[in-house]
Design a protein around this nucleic acid. Sequence first.
DNA 1: GCTCCGACTGAACACGTGTTTAGCATTAAA
DNA 2: TTTAATGCTAAACACGTGTTCAGTCGGAGC
Lengths: 223, 223
Amino acid sequence: MRSASADQTTRERIRDAAVLRFARDGFGASVRSIATDAGVSPALVIHHFGSKDELHAECDEAVLAEIRSAKNDTIDELASGQSILHRFAAADEYAPMLGYVLRSLQDGGPVGRTFIEQMVEDAVGYTKHGVEAGLVKPSRDEAARARYLVLSALGTLMLEITLDPPEDPSDISGLVRGFLATSYLPMIELYTEGFFTTRRMLDEYLLYVPDPPQDAAGEPASE
Amino acid sequence: MRSASADQTTRERIRDAAVLRFARDGFGASVRSIATDAGVSPALVIHHFGSKDELHAECDEAVLAEIRSAKNDTIDELASGQSILHRFAAADEYAPMLGYVLRSLQDGGPVGRTFIEQMVEDAVGYTKHGVEAGLVKPSRDEAARARYLVLSALGTLMLEITLDPPEDPSDISGLVRGFLATSYLPMIELYTEGFFTTRRMLDEYLLYVPDPPQDAAGEPASE
DNA sequence: GCTCCGACTGAACACGTGTTTAGCATTAAA
DNA sequence: TTTAATGCTAAACACGTGTTCAGTCGGAGC
């Protein structure tokens, strides 16, 4: 057996090539293109993974594993204050992984879903920490707020990217920087000063919906 | 585009069927499926439109025209206060159109782009109105804020939908209602109370980026 | 009557896809 | 050396796609 390049298994080489192509072109990328990238025949891809779907699933697993380890590495990096997005801009090494996550988010795949879940979980912790430190205002529903903050940040980023795709999609750092360049000011303005001058909207809503979901971490998983 | 398929041209019937199928299944929907929906042979679709791409383009035009007219109809409906999203929840008649817009947003197509442009333009007007009426705080960059508000609202909605696709995608009203059910509280909370208790983040940013882009109606960074 | 023309269709074409098959080449075991 | 197994490939298969082509149908104008 000849393992052509470095210390990687051919199987791993194929998987990594797939992650990259999926990140770049979306999950519609052909098996043939992945095989070419890996310097291998299309048949070998199937031989190793059984089918394209199973290859996709294995890429999902690999990316999730990488996310988990990256999460442990930078567990307390955004201790206080820093936008959750700065985490991206800091790490170009995670570029393919993040491209993959964005694609999976766009596709509604499992990676996107569990990625969001993890970020929401993190956000709950961070906001709780911030509230206790007196830096962040408390919310009537911390879980809902954390989820909204994550969805809003990532959704805005995704929308901006799809509407105005960058020339080099692998440059996640520059991509996020560009996003922050146009959106950071209105974002922190909103986050520190709010938008309305009156409490009317909020009070009216609280009047209409009389149940403050007091429970802290309980997420009712409603659809 | 309301008609019982009686007095419509076959060409229009095909176009409307295409808009619906594109909205439901995305732009990967096959010409054959569209032809079947319109009760027509695939060849006729090509015969009338030349190619699938031209059909797509014509659907774009039709939807944009409808948006323009719908905009004139409800020009001042969200005069003050109402979330921009409530406009959707009110109008089930626009369901196919909105589904199409969401698909086009997801695809980065021209419809999505000009739709965003129009909404941003509207948002500029509304926020200006709100500021003058004393209901909305002024921003250091009104244009950037309007853009951010639109992108954030639509991006969050899109993300929620793709991550948790509804059983009936044509029920835009229920779809938006479901979205608001989980996101409205954190949203207006954020919009009326803000998130941070300190002005530190904002002031630091304003210190780093010393150019107030043109018409800053707000107070400059203090301390 | 006739021709002409446009709407319309069934069948095919060209192509890209994921996948299968048969077999080659190399290595490890017997 | 023989045998088996494994990594790997070229070629083909089955299928879905957008599109083309030859031709039918039906009505309007002569």
